[in-house]
Amino acid sequence: MFNLQGVRALGRQSLAGLRTLLLFTVVLGIAYPLVVWGIGQAAFGWRADGSLVTTTGAHTRSFADAAGSSLIGQDFKGNKWFLPRPSAAGTGYDPLDTYGSNYGPEDPRLVKLIKQRQAEISAREHVAVSAIPPDAVTASASGLDPAISPAYAALQAARVAREHGLTLTSVQRLIKENTTGRALGFLGDPAVNVLMLNIAITQAHGS
């Protein structure tokens, strides 16, 4: 293969390869995504545009009207909100820098962070450290996790109810309404959407 004839053959085949690649680029690289875009926009426009919601939880396709995406977590801080999981995306929930912490299971920095987070949550929610679920003290893979576990939501219910002057049962009802169970009963894990829950809380508070 490494003689002159071989080099010529490689050159000839590479030219055929170049023509093929250019055709692929037009068909697979331009036409295919455009067709998927066309069908997606026509049939599932809201989802194709990022599942945006307004402050009242209504669907919107305009970034200007949106208070966020129902799929993307937000960096809620302060006692009046249901708080999300720790995030390693940028300074927290930054879609321009998505990632996990990538700390290994024996990493002393991770051990320290978990202890610190447990102490904070224990003080804030007045619960024993043993009652705190794992998702509350660990960073997600994307740094944009929109959800917390039902256990972590339940832990925060009393505080949020107090802050908003709502009854505990009404807050617990809102948690339930914003919980997705396992799909079909066995796929994935039960999850509470933090943004949608906080929207529901502000709506309940306002009414």
Partner: peptide
């Protein structure tokens, strides 16, 4: 797409979150 995966050509846009922060949605 039907399940929520995005398909658009938007550049990152700032939205004002429920808690009043800025978040760039991609």
């Amino acid at each position: 797409v039907a399940l929520g995966v995005v398909q658009n050509f938007a550049s990152p846009h700032v939205v004002h979150t429920l808690a009043g922060q800025a978040q760039h949605l991609t």
